[in-house]
Amino acid sequence: MLEIRNLSARVEGNDILRQLSLSIRPGEVHAIMGPNGAGKSTLGNVLAGRPGYEVTGGEVLFHGKDLLAMEIEERAREGVFLAFQYPVEIPGVSNMEFLKAAVDARRRHLGLGELSSFDFMKLARDAAKRVNLDQAFLKRGVNEGFSGGEKKRNEILQMMLLEPSLCILDETDSGLDIDALQVVAAGVNAMRDGQRSFIVVTHYQRLLDYIVPDHVHVLAAGRIARSGSKELALELEAKGYSWLEDEGV
């Protein structure tokens, strides 16, 4: 469903990704690990089309379509979801209003009708319950005054409502305590249905105890240095990242 071929990208004049290739099939969970500065977050941002991330080479096919040619919102409507490492606050815009507009945009794109406010409200409330967010958060401004954990849970809530086919979690575990981490992981696991794919970007192995990946990739110097099964993550945890360099990768 996602085919990344020789992808190179640059941020503020620095080459971050260097000919990275990765193939993801429906239903798979891929973990991307690696030291700071390896380009983990860049990958997610490039796939989502974040301004300032310049693609200098390669191609990405998403369900056979040229992902890189699409606008940011087209990618989203096609089913790419990026859970932000640092979710953004939008004062005055209520979470509910924002979510409804986003869900409507996706549904229109899929040729489905817009949901009635009543039906949407019901969905949103259920989702909020599932990520353990109080109903009150739906009425507040998007992420406005939310704690770090609340913001991350709000990201998962959005993911549940938008039902994307590719979920990219960008260090969603950073700054979470163990309880919040479990809530987030349970939300993600509930969405694993054999069709939906995940890219889980993380610095720590801990998250992968809860979201068990099918594949683990180690990113170093802008490309995939090693790939393996979930055991690779444990190995990384034990040895750290420096051995990658020792091996001269």
Partner: peptide, 26 residues
């Protein structure tokens, strides 16, 4: 901000809708 706009667009809203939503919130 670029980040606000990107968040809205990443959730599937077009830039125009995103700006009008942010302005309306304001």
């Amino acid at each position: 901000s670029d980040d606000q706009l990107f968040l809205c667009q990443q959730r599937g809203l077009d830039a125009e809708k995103a700006v009008s939503m942010i302005v309306n919130g304001f």
